[in-house]
Nucleic acid binder design. Structure first.
Lengths: 256, 256
DNA sequence: CTGCCTATTCGGTAATACCGAACGGGCATC
DNA sequence: GATGCCCGTTCGGTATTACCGAATAGGCAG
């Protein structure tokens, strides 16, 4: 599946290659002919792409098919380096936050116009989820994502909203632009965002943005089962712990 | 830099794209014109590649240039899934090994014809190195790599040796095919491999392959400073601990 | 406003990504 | 050990497009 065309011309061969990569990501070990069928290309084309990818280590050829190579991890680690400062400033604070809450704690940032998980810490009561470091999700349906959106300059926010549809992940997802903008206003005021079953049917979360003089650097969120995330625990206790933690991260970032 | 051509025709556009990715991996944040210069392509070509990569999240556009995106981490995590079984079977054993030795412990596997780090654990005396999970290195210059090579079927070994030059990383690296094959024979006999400053000038290491009925699954190595890795500590103590640990991993893999 | 620098757009063409058919190699069946 | 089947690779040919270069547009400083 080809993502929305950014601006300008695109390189079609790269679309083909990443369609193959996506197929490999979804299935453990795939035969060449299956890949070709799935992507909708000739066997010969798939063969040429795969042998090129193999040369770089992005794909591994096994006896019974092809699979993704750890070269992606290698390059991914290089990509993560960009966030070293943020990660080291956050790590001890997030660990304390997990200790205090025993819930799931997320560190999230924005890349292009998507939310990306930078770190995830699980308390004993933490809910299992389908997200991991590097996982990308729409900003508008996450507590951390909305906290980030609320801190963006108006024009940048509009650019993102123009670009992406407000896709729904549950029947609580905010899909109307006006509703979202109104909520972002109150988030900016209070410094706290809530996700009330907007990304998963059974999950609530609280978020706060990490903001320095030069803008927003990311956001922290605490997520948990909707059943337990209610009342003042959800609306006051968690937010207060979160505000303290994020403030500490901001201080760590400012003073080295 | 284009890696050796596997077999068959290659897709040149992918070479261009990954040349760009490599440039971004080496430099933190790069302007478009710098990328184009570095790779040796026109600005317009770089622009088209970058906007395609950006659509997938493999590249992020910042105010002052382009950088790698965490999408590589995402896909890398998927790739790592393939090794979940090996990793969970090894983890507790490797932790025990770090406790016992206080040195650096590596879990390595083979992808295509390269060694790839799957896990790294550092003891208090562990040496700092330039390797991380996903990092690829030639098999023939690593303790773990030679342990793996020694367990390959003859034809597969020859295919690898035909394919790759025995590159040197120090003046102790084995670069003669005959020498290597002879050493692999004794490694196969004793079940233990040594790296005597063959990959780094100042590092020695000991390795053992993880072997089941269906072949070799990877290898574990213990590495340390050449100054301290000497005598019976290097030649007996560490090997004995390693053999015990790998045996335990093999048992874990066999019985669930 | 002017000049400078950087990124994107766009026309044209040489290069190639892609397909389809033919080839080859492995594995099972008779 | 011959035959048939399946899967992957090789290879010729062509419509497509990746690539370049020049022109355009967008920032930023003076």
């Amino acid at each position: 599946m080809v993502y929305k065309s950014g601006n300008g011309r695109r390189i079609k061969a790269i679309d083909t290659t990443f369609a193959i990569v996506e197929t490999l990501a979804e299935h453990e070990c795939v035969r060449l002919s299956e890949i070709a069928d799935f992507v909708g290309i000739a066997n010969s084309t798939a063969s040429e792409h795969l042998s090129t990818l193999q040369d770089y280590g992005y794909v591994v050829k096994e006896a019974n098919g092809y699979r993704l190579g750890l070269r992606f991890m290698d390059t991914g680690t290089q990509a993560k380096r960009y966030y070293d400062e943020l990660l080291t400033a956050s790590k001890p604070v997030l660990e304390q936050l997990v200790n205090d809450t025993d819930e799931t704690v997320n560190l999230v940032t924005k890349e292009n116009d998507m939310a990306v998980y930078l770190d995830r810490l699980f308390g004993n009561r933490g809910v299992p989820t389908d997200s991991w470091v590097g996982k990308r999700r729409p900003l508008h349906m996450l507590a951390a994502g909305k906290a980030i959106l609320a801190q963006l300059p108006e024009d940048e926010l509009d650019a993102i909203l123009d670009h992406r549809e407000l896709a729904a992940a549950s029947d609580h997802t905010i899909t109307a632009r006006d509703d979202l903008k109104r909520e972002l206003g109150t988030i900016r005021e209070k410094g706290i965002s809530f996700n009330d079953r907007e990304s998963h049917k059974q999950i609530r979360a609280v978020g706060t943005a990490i903001v320095l003089d030069d803008g927003v650097h990311g956001a922290v969120s605490v997520a948990g089962p909707a059943k337990r995330f209610t009342g003042s625990y959800f609306q006051e206790e968690i937010p207060n712990l979160l505000l303290g933690a994020v403030n500490e991260i901001e201080l760590n970032l400012t003073y080295q």
